[in-house]
Each structure stands twice: as structure tokens, then as C-alpha cells.
């Protein structure tokens, strides 16, 4: 079954690689992953759409990764999903009006063009994006670029970032060794 997970991940080298490697190694299907900065410096927030038989196991396995701070499954919560698509449509001048009509109907925008092409941007649910893309594909050859789903639960606690360990604990620990230097 497909689950929508939201993960908070420390921005360290290889962190994303570890998440992808874990999903592959455990034989889980990754549908999409979208990552970007969170409200906390040094911490990324990712939306992961993954096919798994046991989401509890998947979350526990992800939590074993050192950089993963928190994983939430929002699949059964009230949440919104948005995805952005850029669609480049190869269409001659005479058909541009048609494209504009479709775009307007979907709340999409034309964000750029060249003599041969028009680029449309749209942000909506993945299903609505699919519908729009199907419509413009009937007009001309299309190249699509989609961001992957971004999800956010409507409710939930205020964001909480784990506090760093108190510094004095560190000093005690090191002083146990016979000091050199």
C-alpha cells in the first residue's frame, strides 16, 4: 500500500543517499521524494511516497538512520498534497490560444515560451496535474517536469527540534581518559 511519509532529516552529506539506499535495500517501492529546507537551519523536510506492506517497520527502519530526526505517516490523517508541474508543449502559434484556454481552466499559468514551445506551470493535486497534462498532450508533444508530491497535515503539534546535548556532559566524558595534549 502507498504511504505518504514526512521526514525531518539533518542536512549532512549522504543523508538522502541513506534514505534511498534503505528503501531499495529493503525492497520497497519509492514513488516520489521531494526534499527542501525546513524552518530550521540545517534540517531538511522531505515528503516520501513509498509502497510498503508494513509502514511501521519502514518508519522504524528510517528512524535507525542517524540523520533522520522524525518520520510521520500522514496517510490516514487529514492532509493536503500539492505538486508542481512544468509542461513544455511543442505547438505552433495558431494553437497557443487553445493552450491558454486549457491552462486557464486548470488555474495554470504560461510562464514562458519560444517560437516552437510554450511552458505551462501548474500547482495542484497530482491527479489534477495528470488531467491537465493529458489535455495539453492532445495539442502537441509535451515534456513534463514534476516536483513530486509535497504533503502537510492540517493539524499537529508545533514544530519541535531536538535540543543539542548539554555541553558539560561532554566534558565529563572526555575527562575520563588520561589527558594527552
Amino acid at each position: 500500500m502507498r504511504h505518504t511519509l514526512i521526514a525531518l532529516v539533518e542536512d549532512r552529506p549522504g543523508a538522502l543517499n541513506r534514505i534511498l539506499g534503505l528503501l531499495r535495500g529493503r525492497g520497497l517501492g519509492l514513488h516520489s521524494i521531494a526534499v527542501g529546507d525546513s524552518e530550521t537551519p540545517g534540517v531538511k523536510r522531505a515528503t516520501v511516497l513509498v509502497d510498503t506492506e508494513s509502514v511501521e517497520q519502514t518508519i522504524k527502519q528510517l528512524n535507525r538512520l542517524i540523520e533522520v530526526l522524525e518520520v510521520t505517516d500522514v496517510t490516514n490523517a487529514e492532509y493536503v498534497v500539492r505538486e508542481t508541474a512544468l509542461v513544455k508543449i511543442h505547438a505552433p502559434e495558431p494553437r497557443r490560444d487553445e493552450i491558454k484556454t486549457v491552462a486557464d481552466g486548470f488555474g495554470a499559468r504560461i510562464v514562458g515560451s519560444s517560437p516552437q514551445t510554450v511552458v505551462v506551470e501548474m500547482t495542484d493535486t497530482p491527479d489534477r496535474l495528470g488531467e491537465m497534462i493529458a489535455r495539453v498532450m492532445a495539442i502537441g508533444a509535451c515534456e513534463t517536469m514534476r516536483s513530486g508530491s509535497l504533503a502537510m497535515a492540517l493539524a499537529g503539534p508545533a514544530p519541535r527540534v531536538p535540543a543539542p546535548a548539554p555541553e558539560d556532559a561532554t566534558r565529563v566524558w572526555w575527562s575520563q581518559a588520561d589527558g594527552i595534549s
Binding site: V9, N63, I66, P164, A165, E167, T170, R171, W174
Partner: peptide
């Protein structure tokens, strides 16, 4: 010049 007063900061390691 090494600084040995490092803080153990691995919040993701439960």
C-alpha cells in the same frame, strides 16, 4: 590545534 571539548550532538541517534 585540536579542540577536544566537542559536544556530542547526534539528535537523530535515539
Amino acid at each position: 590545534v585540536p579542540d577536544w571539548n566537542v559536544t556530542l550532538n547526534v539528535p537523530g541517534f535515539s
